Amino acid sequence: MDPTPTGTTQTNTRTRSVVGVSGSDRPRLARHVRMTFCRTRQRQILLNPETVVVLNGSGADILELCDGRHTVAEIVTELGARYQAVPDDEVRQFLSRLVARRWVELDDG
């Protein structure tokens, strides 16, 4: 069990990048993060309590599949079906950076 910032405990959820991202992890956006379309920028954005992050196309495609049901391996496979080549390590690095910022949480597969 991992302690959350409020002092409560949460089972099978990791929010630290130290752990790494495995193919069986099921990523999902953290509760305080929302992905939406910004009409002004004509792009997908992540809304955090004090931050707006403008996503590029591939970042938005990855996060679109981060629903807590898809594993990282399934996300890579799905993106591979859409595009010619999807490097597994780049998807994991992207997710690791978001886990480190606590924008994405990982449920154990």
Rank of each mutant, 00 (worst) to 15 (best):
D107L: 12
R41C: 13
A30R: 15
D89P: 10
Q93K: 01
A60W: 05
V91G: 05
E64F: 08
T40D: 10
R101N: 02
T11A: 15
S24D: 14
T15Q: 02
C66V: 01
C38N: 15
D61N: 01
R43K: 14
G20M: 12
N56P: 05
N56E: 07
D2A: 15
T71M: 03
I45G: 03
L55K: 02
G23Q: 05
R26G: 07
T71F: 02
Q42L: 13
G68H: 10
C38L: 08
G68S: 04
P87I: 04
L47S: 11
V91H: 11
G7T: 12
P49V: 01
G20R: 14
D67Y: 01
T8W: 00
V33S: 00
Q42M: 13
V72C: 03
P5F: 09
W103D: 06
T77H: 09
L65N: 10
R43L: 07
N12H: 08
A30Y: 08
L47K: 10
P3A: 11
G109M: 13
R31C: 02
N56Q: 02
A30S: 14
C66D: 03
R101M: 05
L46G: 08
R101E: 07
R34S: 03
A85H: 13
V19Y: 13
G20I: 09
C38R: 11
V21D: 02
T15S: 09
S22V: 13
W103H: 05
G80K: 06
V104F: 01
C66F: 03
F37K: 08
R41N: 09
A85C: 04
Y83F: 14
L29D: 03
C66N: 08
V52S: 05
R39T: 04
L95N: 01
L106Y: 05
L47Q: 13
L106P: 11
V86Y: 07
L65Y: 07
V86R: 12
V104G: 01
G23C: 13
M1W: 13
V53L: 07
P27T: 05
T77A: 10
N48Y: 03
S22D: 14
G109A: 09
V76P: 03
G68V: 03
P27N: 14
T6C: 06
V53M: 04
V104A: 01
N56L: 02
P3S: 06
V76A: 02
D61F: 00
Q42K: 14
T6Q: 00
V54Q: 10
V21M: 05
V54H: 08
A30G: 10
D107V: 15
F37I: 06
G57I: 11
G20S: 07
M1I: 11
R39H: 08
V21H: 09
